[in-house]
Design a protein around this nucleic acid. Structure first.
Lengths: 219, 219
DNA sequence: TATCAATTGTGAACTATATAACAGTGTGAT
DNA sequence: ATCACACTGTTATATAGTTCACAATTGATA
């Protein structure tokens, strides 16, 4: 495994950055690990470990400098150049995703959407041009798309993923309720809402779960 | 921790069931652990371990009986009575969620939607009655809601969660891009699309990740 | 300047989860 | 009837991730 920073840490870094950005906007300059832990629902130790992973140090008396920290996370997480995203599937969910992500990250934008429904092709939805799925490779070659989002029904998902791989896409965010089988040079992250809801329903019946806001360290 | 079955296993059981149901519909009667492993992107050993967790046994020669297995998962995962779900936030994402879940699980349905926008209240959207958020406790007491879905902007999410907890909801599926702080008798599952997309974008740049379709056991 | 209090950075311990290894089992072929 | 095979069930081992615990650090205070 070439990269030494854990997958979970990568996810949390994204979260921390968002929370820190909100704090910075409120004028907060410094923050301690236990403070960010509270708002991120983590523990202070975990926060410090995550900073360690990206090699950022704070001061024992002042804590961490918020602006610098945001910057350090950006240097670690973000691509130096813009990364372009393609959405496949312009149904209800696809459109909601399109709107949700619009303008959320400056260097990570959905630049094109694809569907197999001819009625959706060649329109512009929420500022995003729509193409037929068969144009994926062409458009991708032209614009340099790195990441794909699958928002098609389960029955279409594998086909969509294969077209993405053929178009040279190296990372897929999969909303379809089925696993994708792709080569292991392509990273897939699944968002399986059905699974998540069933999990919630299950644990809602179980009672108690030791989720720690009261980080052991700070009572 | 009262329950002995791992959180990850619970999630996979939900997935297995869906995949098995699809197989059953195609007329498949028996299946081996390595077969389900392939379609679930897992390993055969993991599948057997997951079955073990719910105490279901197969035959060394015939494998697992699909219909029985679906049944066994249901007995373990599902509530004996219907579990009702409330959706809070009827924006783009909320509506997409409503449509997505409609009829997906027989005993797990979104029975009411809530928003603070007076224009959305008292309408019926996709077969689901809409109420003002302040009616959450009343409606919940009347109908017996167990699970909540948060689909509001980050700025509103904590408030929405607190109202859910006050209404006696014990499990929350959170789509808002911010952690929720609730007591530890309430289970929260986060679906953080921004985090997931950033993770994909990050790993898309990294190359190779040892994802195993080639389960070690079956070359 | 010396002491104090709060926090950091990090090795070590722990917990959760996944993989491997293999004895046990049931069926079909001989 | 016995054997060989392909699988299961489960224990043992390995890996990933989290928390603990404490020495080191630094600014504030007397």
């Amino acid at each position: 495994m070439p990269n030494t920073v854990s997958q979970k840490t990568i996810g949390r870094l994204s979260l921390y950055r968002r929370l820190l950005q909100a704090l910075a906007n409120k004028g907060v300059k410094y923050i301690y690990s236990h403070q960010i832990a509270v708002i991120a629902s983590a523990t202070a130790a975990q926060v410090r470990r995550d900073w360690m992973a990206i090699g950022y140090s704070g001061s024992p008396t002042k804590g961490y400098e918020v602006a610098e920290l945001i910057d350090a996370i950006g240097k670690f997480l973000d691509s130096p150049k813009e990364q372009k995203v393609a959405l496949v599937g312009i149904g209800n969910l696809g459109r909601a995703i399109l709107i949700f992500f619009a303008g959320r990250r400056p260097k990570l934008n959905i630049v094109a959407a694809f569907d197999n429904d001819p009625y959706k092709v060649n329109r512009v939805i929420h500022g995003c041009k729509c193409y037929h799925i068969d144009q994926l490779k062409t458009v991708s070659d032209e614009t340099g798309i790195d990441v794909g989002i699958v928002a098609v029904p389960a029955s279409e998902a594998q086909k969509a993923a294969e077209k993405m791989v053929a178009a040279g896409i190296k990372g897929i965010l999969n909303f379809a309720p089925t696993p994708l089988r792709v080569g292991n040079n392509v990273y897939v992250e699944d968002i399986d809402m059905t699974m998540s809801l069933e999990k919630v329903a299950f644990f809602a019946r179980q009672g108690n779960f030791e989720r720690n806001f009261t980080s052991g360290e700070y009572e």
